[in-house]
Design a protein around this nucleic acid. Structure first.
Length: 549
RNA sequence: GCGCUUGUAGCUCAGUAGGAUAGAGCACCAGAUUCCUAAUCUGGGGGUCGCAGGUUCGAUUCCUGCCAAGCGCGCCA
């Protein structure tokens, strides 16, 4: 219906002046839920200038050309809105056709979580995980072939420090006097240390060789990665591809990348300000530097370190080159807010190499944990972290997924754990599920589907109109990559259902079932439609509807 | 100091690629259950959309400045 109206308006506007180029997607039709009508468009306001007219004149012109069979009333309101009121008889099973016409079968690579493999997942990773998974579901809903990808940064200083921390723990516990430092703290380090010691006991009889050390740390990393995969898997989040930084390095993309960037005159040899803990002399070696200031970055960025080895940035470019080589033109990364400053350099490098790549990043802001009405102070450095698996265990998968995705991804969020654990109306997910259970109970009790006249009440109309919005909402969530819109819509939709349900308290004729438990075919289709949309929406969120509560 | 994100009701947050009277939940007050599930519904109070300018027919939305909170500001990852 909404789409038809849009199309109708579009055709009229084209007919009015064939020389004016407008796009059908520029036409906005919104749903109204009050006395003004059922739908509204601001087209006359929006286009009056390019039609060399004034809003009210253009509105009149549009109305003159409108096929008005379906409408009870069409009127100009305010500065030039056109408000449409549908005839009552239009509200029937024909009204809703919520098949999504738009399909796009392109391959998409969505990379998310990608936590450093030096510790267990904690609260902050949870948001990225849920948002990434739901976004993947959403892209699949629109036909894309989605690869959910996880990246393991298993090189660099952090890995040395991780190993050192493990050996420190082993040394302490077993009186080995290994000369190691403690960088990471926490029970999990001791657990992994024990595990490593049990597995490699014989190695500790003599001094560890470099290859021994590599074996131990790889074992520890593998252990953590497996834990991570398991934790996320328990929340219904599964990956199609796990990429290791070391494997990407073996493919030796960097020389080709540097050559290509050099040809585009985007790199140079030179010096940058010395890093904080730098001990050598700056003139040891020239660095290879990417001119990211050309792309509005604050500074140019180093691709090689003083010792000639690649920086994290360089390896990350290679990683994205690898994604491209695997056939992905559409890359989406989910990052924490602490990487905001990293976006410009990476996106400019990627698009310099391959302008055809559609690269975008969805940022997830900080999540605070609130308990007993107080924000909990958590610090990873002190080993005082709230592990994600504990959170999921405490609140359950449905709550976890819902509450991590019902706030806009780039706003700061307080996760009130006491509120989530309440199983009542303060918790929106029960509200949504309850409406589904109500529809199911009607369907379960239905005797026969019969053809009768539909009683068109304002509550019924509102539910129909809300169902019509689904197509716009889901498309908007997809285009804007904003998954919270889905949860908000489902809550709102449920509300219209509960209102309709309750209206039968005062008006028994508004019930779905008659005395003989028969239902009109229109209402039956309405209920099925309602269930389908709720099911689709919940499925994208990764939540199963409850048939009974 | 610079950059990014955020600032909307007592609280938690929607809305804003310029549009009509700025919304929801919670909390507070008053009601609804012989009736398909009351885990629900109805009504009510509550707002200078951080502050100040600017752009125009119109700004919570765009621009500038300021204030506040968070994050980032390595050849770390």
């Amino acid at each position: 219906m909404l789409h038809n109206l849009k199309k109708n308006l579009f055709e009229i506007l084209v007919k009015i002046d064939k020389n004016i180029m407008i796009n059908i997607d520029d036409i906005e039709v919104e749903t109204l839920f009050d006395k003004r009508g059922d739908f509204t468009t601001n087209s006359a306001l929006k286009f009056s200038k390019i039609y060399n007219s004034n809003p009210k004149q253009l509105a009149n012109l549009i109305i003159e050309n409108l096929k008005i069979n379906d409408f009870e009333k069409v009127e100009i309101a305010g500065p030039g809105f056109i408000n449409f009121t549908l005839k009552d008889e239009t509200f029937n099973s024909q009204l809703i056709n919520n098949k999504i016409e738009f399909k796009n079968t392109d391959k998409v690579n969505i990379e998310f979580v990608s936590a450093n493999p030096t510790g267990p997942l904690h609260l902050a990773h949870g948001r990225g995980a849920v948002v990434g998974d739901i976004l993947s579901n959403l892209f699949e809903y629109f036909g894309h072939k989605v690869t959910r990808e996880y990246y393991v940064n298993n090189t660099g200083n952090q890995i040395n420090e991780f190993l050192s921390s493990i050996l420190y723990s082993i040394s302490n516990k077993n009186n080995l006097s290994l000369n190691e430092n403690q960088f990471y703290k926490g029970d999990y380090i001791n657990d992994i240390a024990n595990y490593c010691y049990e597995n490699f006991k014989s190695l500790f009889n003599k001094e560890l060789s470099p290859s021994d050390r590599i074996n131990i740390v790889n074992f520890a990393i593998e252990n953590l990665v497996n834990q991570t995969i398991q934790t996320l898997g328990s929340a219904g989040i599964n990956f199609d591809e796990i990429s290791y930084e070391t494997n990407i390095m073996e493919k030796e993309y960097l020389p080709l990348i540097l050559e290509k960037l050099n040809q585009s005159e985007l790199i140079y040899k030179g010096q940058l300000n010395a890093p904080k803990d730098y001990t050598g002399t700056q003139k040891d070696n020239d660095l290879t530097i990417f001119k990211s200031t050309l792309f509005n970055d604050d500074e140019d960025r180093a691709l090689t370190k003083n010792d000639g080895s690649p920086t994290y940035f360089a390896n990350d470019i290679a990683y994205h080159e690898d994604k491209y080589q695997r056939g992905y033109n559409k890359l989406i990364n989910i990052w924490g807010a602490d990487h905001l400053g990293y976006l410009k350099r990476l996106s400019s490098a990627i698009t310099s190499l391959h302008p055809e790549i559609d690269f975008s990043v969805v940022f997830c802001q900080i999540v605070n944990l609130k308990r007993d009405n107080k924000i909990q102070k958590l610090s990873k450095r002190e080993g005082n972290i709230f592990e994600l698996k504990n959170l999921i265990n405490e609140i359950g998968v449905d709550n976890f997924r819902y509450f991590m995705s019902y706030r806009k991804n780039d706003t700061h969020m307080d996760l009130d754990i006491d509120l989530i654990k309440k199983e009542n109306k303060e918790n929106p997910i029960y509200y949504i599920q309850y409406s589904y259970a109500r529809t199911q109970s009607v369907l379960d009790k239905t005797n026969k589907i019969i053809e009768t006249q539909l009683l068109v009440t304002s509550e019924l109309k509102n539910l129909y109109k809300k169902l019509l919005e689904w197509e716009n909402v889901i498309k908007s969530a997809y285009q804007k990559k904003e998954v919270h819109l889905i949860a908000h819509y489902l809550e709102s939709l449920s509300s219209y259902f509960h209102t309709l349900w309750s209206s039968s308290k005062n008006n028994p004729k508004a019930k779905f079932l008659d005395k003989d438990n028969n239902i009109s075919s229109d209402l039956h289709k309405l209920l099925c439609n309602y269930q389908n949309i709720l099911k689709d929406g919940l499925k994208i969120l990764g939540i199963k509807p409850k048939l009974q509560m």
